[in-house]
Design a protein around this nucleic acid. Structure first.
Length: 182
DNA sequence: CCCTGATTCGC
DNA sequence: GCGAATCAGG
């Protein structure tokens, strides 16, 4: 994938909104988080301040560099410090929203506890946004994709399955059991 | 181990 | 310019 103007623009937007490099990479598609970070640096976009996230940057970043003696100390650019002045709405805020109602438009995928036949009770969801999904987070969708409260289960899915153990059961019902649940 | 960003350097 | 490999850290 090459960096078209549109992709670069999206990168800038998402980066300024505080999405992580891997999340941005996921949204853009076709690129790794490294590619995103590399591009961010090349574009000279302001890095992550130094908040809780990661990377103390600059100082103790990586002193492994030999540095030829010829190089003169370059003066750091003064001012132009653009701190994120905006509200800074991160995707995690989704989880902070009211959860008074459970949409549950998709089949009978109620994420609320649903005792099935005996002792299988299910867990709450982690309410992850699309961009937060990784290889091992349950991708079971919850809610109306057109609505804001839409999210994914997000529970851990240890094995190759795209779903957590609970949703894997719902997803791959052996037909016999399907009737029972309905 | 999961994740984060930062940096280097061969391509 | 690009991004994998690597580093450094939470």
């Amino acid at each position: 994938m090459n960096w078209t103007d549109e992709r670069v623009e999206k990168l800038k937007k998402l980066w300024s909104e505080g999405l992580s490099a891997s999340q941005i990479a996921a949204q853009l598609g076709g690129v790794s988080r490294n590619a995103v970070i590399g591009k961010v640096h090349r574009l000279a976009l302001p890095g992550r301040a130094k908040a809780g996230g990661a990377a103390p940057a600059a100082a103790s970043a990586r002193p492994k560099r030999p540095v030829p003696p010829v190089a003169a100390p370059q003066r750091p650019q003064q001012d132009t410090l653009r701190a994120p002045q905006r509200p800074l709405v991160r995707q995690n805020d989704v989880a902070l929203m009211k959860d008074d109602q459970t949409p549950d438009m998709i089949e009978e995928s109620a994420p609320v506890e649903t005792p099935v036949a005996g002792n299988v009770v299910v867990p709450m969801t982690r309410k992850l946004a699309l961009t937060q999904l990784t290889d091992r987070t349950c991708k079971w969708p919850i809610g109306d994709p057109m609505k804001d409260e839409f999210h994914f289960c997000g529970n851990d899915c240890s094995e190759g399955s795209p779903y957590c153990t609970y949703h894997a059961r719902l997803a791959y019902q052996p037909s016999a059991e399907r009737r029972r649940v309905r």
